[in-house]
Nucleic acid binder design. Structure first.
Lengths: 205, 205
DNA sequence: TACAAGATACCGACCAATCGGTATCTTGTC
DNA sequence: GACAAGATACCGATTGGTCGGTATCTTGTA
C-alpha cells in the first residue's frame, strides 16, 4: 500500500553485521535486558522484519553478539598476544602496560562487555552463562598454557600452579576494570593494573 | 467505594523495611532495571500506594537499597573484622578463609550485590554510581588503614603502598566473586580466593 | 478530658508508554 | 516463478507512575 523505505541493493550479510554491531553497542550501554530492539533498529535503519528474519528472538541476537562480537574481540585483545614469545610474564606485562597507556574511554565508561554480561545474565539464562563461560575458559587456558611453557623455560617460578594463577589473573583484570568503571577514573584503573603488574612480577623465577 | 484490604495496625517503619528488603532481593535476582515493582509488591503484600508514599520513584527505592541495605551489609561482613587486631594480614586471611569455607550459595548464584549494581548502573545513573563509590571508598580506606598500621607493627612489608594494594585487593575480591558466579561453581570461587590468599601472604614483612 | 482538625499512611483502579514479537505484505535476486 | 530479504502495521503484556479516596494516628484547643 505505501512505498517502503528502501534499501536499494540487498546485502543480507551486511544487514546481519549491522544488527550485530548496533546490538553490541546497545547492550554495552544499557545491558541486555534493558537493550531496546527499537533503538537498535533506529541506529541501523534496518526494519523489524529484517531483524526477525535474521534472528528468531532478542535472546538469539544477544547470544550471537556474545559469540560473534565479544568473543573475537577479547581473543584479539587478550589472547593473541600470548602466542608471540616464550616469556609469558613479559607478554603479560606488555599487555598490561599497553592497557594502562591506552586506557580507552569506552572501557572506563562502560567497562568490560564480558564482565557486564556475566554479572547481569549468568544467573538468569543458562545459554548466556555457557557462552560467556566458554570465553572465560579459553582465556584462562591460554594464560595457563603460557605460564606452563614459561616454567619450562625457567622464566616462571616452578612452584606456581598455572591454572590457579591464570584464573586469579583473569579475575583481577575484571576487578580492575570494574573499579575503574565505577570510579569513572582512568587513574584508578591504571593504579589497579599497576598492582597487578607487581603481582605478575612476583611470579618470575 | 470498596472496603480496602486491611493492615490492621499501622507500622510505617516496618512497611518501609519490608519494601527495602523485598526490593533488595528483587534487585539481586533481576538487576535494578529489570526489577519489577509489581513483583516487589507481591512479595510484601504492600500496596502500590504505600510504596509511592515511602519512595518517590523506583530510582529512589533503589538508591535507598544501596545506602540502607547493601552498604551496612558489606560493612558488617568485610569492614568490621579489620578493627579487631593489629595484624591486618592475619585478619584478611581469616576473612578470606571464612569466605572460602562458608561459600554462600547466594554468592555463587547472584554474586556480590555491590559489583552487580556497579556493572549495571554506574554508567547510567550518576547518583547510583556515587552511592556505590562511597561504599568502595570506605572499603579501600578501611583496608589501607589496616595495612598502614600493619607496617608500623612490622608485620607488613615496608615497601608496600597501602592504598594501592588495598584497591587491588578489593578489585581481586570482586573479580573472584564474578568468576565463581559465572562458573556457578563454589570450587572456582574457592580456588580463586586461595590465590588471593597467596598474594596476601606475599605482603608479609 | 473531649473532640475537632489536620497530617500521615495506605489502598487499588487506572494511565500512557514501551516492550518483544507476529502477520502480512512487497520487493529484489537467482 | 520461487524464495530469500525486507517492510510495516499491529498485538497483548508489562512497565513505572498517578490519582481520588479512605483509614488511622497525632495534636492543638477549649
Amino acid at each position: 500500500m505505501m512505498t517502503q523505505a528502501i534499501r536499494k541493493t540487498r546485502n543480507p550479510e551486511q544487514t546481519r553485521n549491522d544488527l550485530l554491531s548496533a546490538a553490541y553497542t546497545e547492550i554495552l550501554e544499557s545491558g541486555f535486558q534493558a537493550a531496546s530492539l527499537e533503538r537498535i533498529l533506529a541506529n541501523t535503519s534496518v526494519s523489524k522484519g529484517a531483524l526477525y528474519h535474521h534472528f528468531g528472538t532478542k535472546r538469539e541476537l544477544g547470544l550471537a553478539v556474545v559469540e560473534e562480537v565479544i568473543a573475537p574481540q577479547l581473543a584479539a585483545r587478550w589472547f593473541a598476544p600470548f602466542a608471540e614469545h616464550d616469556d609469558p610474564l613479559a607478554s603479560l606485562q606488555r599487555i598490561l602496560e599497553e592497557k594502562i597507556n591506552t586506557a580507552d574511554e569506552s572501557v572506563i565508561r562502560y567497562g568490560c562487555p564480558l564482565n557486564n554480561l556475566i554479572q547481569e545474565m549468568s544467573p538468569l539464562d543458562e545459554a548466556f552463562r555457557h557462552g560467556l563461560q566458554q570465553i572465560l575458559d579459553r582465556w584462562v587456558e591460554v594464560m595457563a598454557t603460557a605460564l606452563t611453557e614459561g616454567q619450562l623455560a625457567r622464566k616462571v617460578r616452578a612452584d606456581l600452579e598455572p591454572k590457579e594463577a591464570a584464573l586469579f589473573i583473569v579475575a583481577a583484570i575484571e576487578g580492575c576494570v570494574g573499579l575503574g568503571k565505577n570510579a569513572q577514573s582512568v587513574e584508578a584503573y591504571q593504579r589497579c593494573l599497576r598492582q597487578l603488574q607487581l603481582y605478575v612480577q612476583s611470579l618470575a623465577a
